[in-house]
Design a binder for these strands. Structure first.
Length: 443
RNA sequence: GCGGUCAUAGUUCAGUUGGUUAGAACGUCUGAUUGUGGUUCAGAAGGUCGUGGGUUCGAGCCCCAUUGAUCGCCCCA
């Protein structure tokens, strides 16, 4: 067979041991906060029935679902009908899970889930086709205290990671209210998607896009105060109260936001800044209340690193109505990118191995076996160089792997019943009995 | 799905208006040193110049196509 060039699918990555240490640091930090807040873990399969996923993420989302080729003797590529697909996020599989296992679940159900998801879109900076989401959701509770807890969890996670962030909060009911009062109720998605780009393309760009989407001039004019407005959260809420006074749903949204922000200001967030952002329009396909997005406030990384919101009826489509949920999702890969750029990973890059047994031959190597077992029994991670090669090569190996101590065993050591222990950092050596070595390494 | 940029050794990159045998650094391997790594010195291996076509006496370089990478748009963690 011809030699083939090795490679992996676009938008996917290998992770080296060094990278995995850092990735696990992120996962562990997030997981510990989830646990602290009483969330319990679940996992769901990498693949779901296609019908479970289709239609949940909008037209664009459907297109980005990785579909799995069905098995078949005679596969005709033109009439393939996939029945399964890789999961696109963790929220919809979770909704499916809740409906399927409702009789076993104690509601309100607080679950966390850390698994990869797949999206068939074009990779670019901070965008992968395989990436991990770390979700925490509580389902079966309408209380806004859940939203508050999610904000506190976000703050705590990024405090742990020492990553400065801004939590942007909006409410779908506000967006609905705005669309209602300007008389473009049906165009709510077009309007909010356009306003969402304010940061990127400016007021002129937003207005241009609104016109392209056939929004009436009168409606665009009514939107201007919102687009041009600058001020703090309290001022924004006052403006919204004025604008949305005729909209029942808009008022409900304002009420929710006031409640949430009042509680947030009582809690004193540690690292996160928190602000009302009426241009925030994520997850419109199923969010009905709060919308949350988190961005790093330093560095060049502008994509969101965490997002979430409330969905009132995600389980309805699977046959369990009136089950409100709210959750957040941390994008571990993007958090990794932000932390790499800002150099936020702690220095302690723990070596996997503390002690390497190096030897001068087969007899010496085998002499090490009981010593190796003793060392491991004492809880010290240790390994024995498995092949008979020059000592130089064994030391080189230890050096490259960052192993801090090497126990050298030759005929002299065997006779004396000692080990020549070399400190790889400063090159110093001393002869120690195995128990002396273990005591020193444990200390 | 749409647009820009790029593609040369394991890696990062040189390579003159198109001209003989495509270079460097780092890495790898061997030796100096058959009981000592991270420093030094000597040497070696390693390339169908992404792939396929075209122009030309002659292509790493020019043209077309294709694939891949990357950066934007759409959308999103």
């Amino acid at each position: 067979m011809a030699i083939q060039k090795p490679g992996i699918p676009k938008g996917t990555r290998d992770f080296s041991p060094e990278e995995m240490v850092k990735r696990n640091y992120i996962f562990d930090s997030i997981r510990s906060v989830f646990r602290l807040y009483g969330y319990t873990p679940i996992e769901t399969p990498a693949m779901e029935n296609l019908t479970t996923l289709m239609g949940k993420y909008g037209e664009e989302g459907d297109r980005l679902i990785f579909k799995i080729l069905p098995r078949g003797e005679k596969l005709n590529m033109d009439v393939i009908k996939p029945e399964e697909a890789l999961r696109y996020d963790l929220t919809v599989p979770f909704a499916r899970y809740v409906v399927q296992h409702q009789q076993d679940i104690a509601f309100p159900f607080r679950r966390y889930q850390i698994q990869p998801v797949w999206r068939a879109d074009r990779p670019q900076k901070g965008r992968y086709r395989e990436f991990y989401q770390c979700d925490a959701d509580v389902i079966g509770s309408d209380s806004l205290l859940n939203e508050l807890e999610l904000i506190l969890m976000i703050d705590q996670v990024f405090t742990k990671l020492k990553a400065p962030v801004c939590i942007k909060i909006n409410n779908r009911k506000i967006l609905s209210g705005i669309a209602e009062v300007i008389g473009e109720k049906e165009k709510i998605v077009d309007i909010t998607v356009a306003i969402d780009k304010l940061d990127k393309i400016g007021a002129d760009g937003v207005n241009k896009e609104l016109r392209e989407k056939q929004i009436s001039e009168k409606a665009i004019e009514q939107l201007q105060p919102l687009i041009e407005f600058t001020g703090d959260t309290a001022a924004k809420l006052n403006l919204l109260k004025e604008l949305l006074r005729t909209s029942e749903i808009g008022n409900k949204g304002i009420e929710e936001l006031e409640y949430l922000f009042a509680h947030i200001s009582n809690c004193e967030l540690q690292i996160a800044k928190c602000e009302l952002d009426i241009t925030l329009a994520r997850g419109l396909n199923y969010y009905t209340g709060a919308i949350i997005e988190v961005k790093a406030t330093e560095g060049t990384f502008t994509s969101s690193i965490c997002g979430g919101g409330r969905y009132d009826d995600l389980t309805g489509i699977f046959g369990l109505p009136n089950m409100s949920g709210v959750g957040i999702s941390f994008g571990a890969d993007r958090i990794y990118d932000v932390m790499t750029e800002l150099n936020l990973f702690p220095q302690e890059v723990k070596a996997s191995t503390t002690l390497l047994f190096a030897h001068f031959g087969e007899a010496e190597r085998d002499h090490c076996l009981p010593l190796l077992a003793q060392t491991r029994k004492a809880g010290i991670s240790a390994e024995l160089y498995p092949d008979v090669v020059k000592i130089k090569k064994q030391l080189d190996y230890a050096n490259k792997k960052g192993i801090p101590f090497v126990a050298v065993v030759g005929s002299d050591e065997m006779k004396e019943g000692v080990l020549t222990v070399k400190n790889m950092k400063d090159g110093s050596q001393m002869k120690l009995k195995i128990y002396e070595l273990i005591d020193r390494l444990k200390a």
